[in-house]
Each structure stands twice: as structure tokens, then as C-alpha cells.
Amino acid sequence: RRRVRAILPYTKVPDTDEISFLKGDMFIVHNELEDGWMWVTNLRTDEQGLIVEDLVEEVGR
């Protein structure tokens, strides 16, 4: 599965499916959606939700 790492921290918008995360958090990407959004699991918190791909970088497989 594709893995990405947060290059900046992010605080979710209330009442959305987004998740908050810290710089350096690692994610497993489950689905890539329209407009640059991805459905992921945060490996640090085990939380699932939406993040925007502009805030992450690819991690070598």
C-alpha cells in the first residue's frame, strides 16, 4: 500500500471527515479521491479520515 508522510501539521475543520495530524505523521493511503483528497489511516493515532495531498510527501516503498 502507498504510504505518505505529513510535511506540515494540520488541524481538521470541525464536523468534517478530515483528521488532524502532526508534521512527520505517517499514513497508509486507502483511496485517492477527487481534488487531491485521500482517505487514510494515521499510523500514530490509528485514526481514519480525509487529508489533502498537498500536505504530504511520498515515502519509499
Rank of each mutant, 00 (worst) to 15 (best):
R1K: 15
R3V: 10
R3E: 13
R3D: 05
V4M: 11
V4D: 01
R5Y: 06
R5A: 06
A6Y: 02
I7V: 10
L8P: 00
L8Y: 10
P9N: 10
P9A: 13
P9H: 08
Y10K: 05
K12H: 08
K12S: 10
K12D: 03
K12Q: 08
V13W: 09
V13P: 06
V13L: 11
P14V: 10
D15C: 09
D15T: 07
E18F: 05
E18C: 06
E18R: 06
I19K: 01
S20L: 00
F21N: 02
F21K: 00
F21Q: 03
K23E: 14
K23P: 12
K23Q: 11
K23R: 10
D25Q: 03
D25F: 02
D25K: 00
M26K: 06
F27Q: 02
F27H: 03
F27T: 01
I28V: 13
I28L: 12
I28P: 02
H30V: 06
H30L: 10
N31S: 13
N31F: 08
N31Q: 15
N31E: 12
L33E: 09
L33T: 12
D35H: 12
D35T: 10
D35M: 09
D35G: 14
D35N: 13
G36C: 04
G36F: 00
W37S: 14
W37Q: 15
M38V: 06
M38W: 05
W39E: 14
V40Y: 03
V40H: 02
T41P: 00
T41H: 10
T41D: 02
T41V: 06
N42T: 01
R44H: 04
R44N: 07
T45K: 00
T45Q: 00
D46L: 10
D46N: 14
D46T: 13
D46P: 02
D46W: 15
E47N: 05
Q48C: 12
Q48P: 05
Q48R: 11
G49I: 01
L50F: 09
L50Q: 15
I51A: 05
V52I: 14
E53T: 15
E53L: 07
E53P: 12
D54W: 08
D54H: 07
D54F: 07
D54I: 06
L55G: 06
L55T: 08
V56N: 01
V56E: 00
V56R: 02
E57Y: 06
E57M: 06
E58R: 08
E58I: 07
E58L: 06
E58H: 08
E58F: 06
V59G: 08
G60N: 13
G60W: 07
R61S: 14
